[in-house]
Computed example of a mutant assay.
Amino acid sequence: MLSLVAPPTLGRTPLPAEGGGAGAVLRAVLAGGPLTRSAVGRATELSPAAVSRHTADLSALGLLRELPPEDGPPRAGRPQLPLDIDTRHHLAAGVHIGVPWLTFGLLDLRGRVVAHERLPRRGDAADVLRTVRAHLPGFVGRRAAGRSLLGLGVVTGGWVDSERGTVVQHGPLGWRDVPVRELLKGVTRLPVHLESHARALARAELLFGAGRGATELVELFVGNVVDAAIATGGTVLRGRRSRAGDIGHLPVPGSTEPCSCGRTGCLEATVAQDTVARRAHARGLIPAPEFDLLLRLAAGGDTEALGLLKERLTLTAPAAALLIDVLNPEVLVVSEAGLTAVPSLVGHLREQVLRHTRAEPTQLVTAASFGMEVLAVAACAGVLDSAYQRPMELRTARAG
């Protein structure tokens, strides 16, 4: 039976060792903090001297801080002051480029959304990136409260080549070979972390969400684009030219929905938000073919709207089950707006996945961990993942 809630021992697997001792210390405090230095040593298997050296370096960078001693009678010997993530100095900035919206976000070092704003997504790639360049400085200046930026994340769907900094193909947007990193270079004077939203959300779930403490995770993103991300050994796989997880063109039996790839019946075309919204509009459920209208109707309990969202999950379930059977992850996270708007639909998803898979009792199938702020979290996740993996390589820029 698949589990719907994280078991209390989800942190059963060790932290990944990549990223050097400073990264291991920082991730240990994120996962279990506040922690004393001795507890950090046990979690990382580093010597006391190494722990002290790395904590001093991380504190100097404004990433760790010592908490004041707990109230109580004094104890003999040098007090063991707990270490915690320092969220006072730095933020990650990001933008998620979706079909209907651009979502701008600022996150602190614990992955908490400090601010987010969204604008309608209009025009071609050049128009969109001009909008990002124009809006981002003001957004950061208004909302960052003087904290420095660790970097800029840019996240979207489709085939995203993270190493080249290029959106190779995004069918619903009509983008092909767009050099996003080059076009946004200099907007914050910091590195631009371009990533697909599935891989970005997988990183966020491993750091702050349902995958916290796990090393084997699959993220399935279902929006206007459908794709997956695979994490093994705590590392999110990109594959050759960053194409791992491209499942949007799996065939859906019985579907005749035309796809941008030229075929019909592809998963992405069949369950895309725009497709489902058109169905709802054609049935007279909503006054315009807008997915947000359908979500609001379903959240209010409308049975026909709920039926359409259930149908979407039913069509998605075989792909989710295939990912479980092929990859055997500890955690499968399905990021889909209907599950956020109507959390009880997770039960329907579980039932449908069970029809198609032979999952183990310890495997967790769940919705995304970040609620309505999921796109803001995705936008910034690559920046934060880089900070936790390679903290000694950080450069920062003052916001505003």
Rank of each mutant, 00 (worst) to 15 (best):
D108W: 00
D86T: 08
L322K: 02
V334D: 00
D177S: 14
R312Q: 12
L309K: 03
D177K: 11
A93D: 02
A126D: 09
E163Q: 15
T36V: 12
A28C: 04
L2V: 13
R142I: 01
P191M: 10
T256Y: 11
G209K: 06
R263D: 03
G138A: 14
V178G: 12
V342G: 00
G307T: 00
V140Y: 08
L327S: 11
P100M: 06
E66D: 09
L149D: 07
T314Y: 01
P253H: 08
L293E: 03
G254P: 05
A115G: 04
G11A: 07
F291M: 00
M1C: 13
V160R: 06
P287M: 01
V218I: 12
L332T: 12
V342P: 00
R283K: 13
V160D: 00
T13D: 12
P172Q: 01
R199H: 06
V51T: 11
R42E: 10
L183P: 03
L194A: 12
S335Q: 06
E268L: 02
A288H: 01
K185S: 13
A282H: 09
S38D: 15
I324L: 14
R263C: 08
G223W: 00
A145G: 12
T362H: 14
L2S: 09
D246M: 15
T13Q: 14
A277P: 00
T215N: 14
L297H: 02
L322C: 07
L26T: 04
I85T: 11
L67D: 14
R278N: 00
C261R: 08
L345Q: 04
E257L: 02
A337C: 02
A282N: 04
P69N: 07
